[in-house]
């Protein structure tokens, strides 16, 4: 099978370092297929965080972390509370598509410039990425130990008691955290391309 036009450029030269918080200029330099290594502070959020932020429409000061320019990582980690603080045991991405109905509004209202997860997202998010100069990053599903070791420190948490460990918003300090750009601010989506190609193969297999 021919390689995708968005094949990951995974030679060291093409890997881009990105530092958080992002700027719109940073985002516009990213294209589908780019391999990135992320450094700095990012937040996690999955089903409950999305539903909450979507309906409550909070002001920036009502959230303990500054979400402007942030990456929101779809992740429900395993974290152990120790005497020295929180310790991340395992934390890979969760399926992003479940928050498709919320994400477009979260991106525009809270000023996120990146969303990270697995499996890709749909049309509403593609449009929101374009409109808000935001990017979707895909990281490696199931590689929870490997990825946890790219998190230097669990800095803080919000809504732990209310939402529980897997659903709280965690603030992680990451170093060289690997991901691939699969949906960019130019409206391109690797997921859309793969789905289209697989659709024509599927149709042939069931004709």
């Amino acid at each position: 099978m021919a390689n995708s036009k968005f094949e990951i450029r995974n030679s060291k030269l093409k890997t881009k370092q990105i530092t958080l918080p992002l700027t719109k200029d940073d985002v516009m330099k990213l294209h589908v297929g780019d391999m990135v290594l992320i450094n700095g502070l990012l937040v996690t959020g999955r089903d409950k965080v999305h539903k909450f932020l979507f309906h409550e429409r909070l002001k920036a000061e009502q959230i303990p972390f500054n979400l402007k320019g942030m990456i929101l990582y779809h992740c429900g980690p395993i974290i152990r509370k120790t005497e020295k603080g929180f310790k991340l045991i395992a934390g890979g991405p969760t399926t992003s598509m479940r928050v498709e109905i919320y994400e477009h509004q979260i991106i525009s209202e809270y000023g996120l410039l990146g969303v990270m997860g697995k499996g890709g997202m749909g049309k509403k998010t593609i449009d929101a990425l374009k409109k808000n100069s935001c990017v979707y990053l895909h990281t490696i599903g199931g590689a929870a130990v490997y990825l946890a070791d790219r998190v230097k420190r669990v800095v803080d948490v919000w809504k732990l008691k209310e939402f529980g460990m897997a659903e709280a918003m965690w603030l992680f300090d990451v170093a060289d955290f690997p991901a691939v750009v699969t949906m960019d601010a130019y409206g391109e989506s690797l997921h859309e391309e793969i789905e289209k190609r697989s659709y024509s193969k599927f149709k042939r297999l069931i004709k």
């Binding site: 099978m1 094949e7 697995k118 895909h138 793969i194 193969k201 599927f202 297999l205």
Partner: peptide
């Protein structure tokens, strides 16, 4: 033959 591939990235 679908070409979805590991993690769906082809």
């Amino acid at each position: 033959k679908l070409g979805i591939g590991p993690l769906g990235l082809g």
